[in-house]
Amino acid sequence: MKQLVILSGKGGTGKTSVVAAFAHLASAGPFAGQVILADADVDAANLELVLHPKRLDTEPFRGGEVAVIDEDQCVQCGDCESICRFDAIVETDAGWIVDPVACEGCAACVHQCPTASIAMQEQTVGEYAYSDSLYGPLHHAHLYPGQESSGKLVTEVRQRACRQALDEQRPLVLIDGPPGIGCPVIAAVSGADLALLVTEPTVAGLQDLRRALQTLRHFGVPALVCINKADVYPVGAQGIDAYCRANGIDTVARVPFDPSVPGAMVAGAAVTAYRPDAPASLALSAVWQQVVAVLAKDLPGAAPAATVGDAARNNPD
């Protein structure tokens, strides 16, 4: 079983449109009936707007615990406020309360409260869903607005998708990753077989691509790069090409700017299904063929670079 994750660093480069196109393309070729889909962008879960999933199962997702002050027992000493390093204890007219969003769940206040008025409470911060979609089984999730620990939810979504792939002996899990380079991204990529980075030829796109590639290298995940809207700023596309070449990364393809892409989004369809002959669709089909070819080879895992994180992991004292 192989795990392919689509990432971008910078948001809005067309990641989800690429995943939707891949899901559609995979449903027809040699991968027909072989793919499990996972939407790991849990705080902007857009893949379902294209895949039209029929929910088979929904489960609440419990995040970490947060502190809750019992106002009847609280003597308003404010000790909790002074020790909280996350500015989560807030004074109101009714006394001290915990801001559940700012609360880190460390329980420092629980230990410090002289009247034992603070307890930890588990929170439901989102939901995990399993659906049957247009192009195969879809594991997805929604983090409620403003909640924490999407990394944990991403891990859950990915694990469930992989478990199903193993159980049903499906060879490919296709993962729509989150933007950025932090916890949710790490949760989406660590241990994946291949990452396709969708970038755009802008100064911001290149800067974020660099950080995303460094992150992948850190976690030893091989990467391919696809430049979306490549013709909007050819100089920028050349800059990305040059950067990738210098870092030994294959730039698999360029996808042209094409109004069919937002058109497909509005129609709620994968662009390759919406207008199979549109320039973006043809380019994406070519990218998909290249990705399949790379996945088919047994990829040697890139060696993780020795970095601060590793040093911290191996030698904290």
Binding site: G151, T155, S190, P304, R313
Partner: peptide, 8 residues
């Protein structure tokens, strides 16, 4: 045996 998990 592996690089460790994150976010779990």
């Amino acid at each position: 045996t592996h690089g460790g998990h994150h976010g779990d």
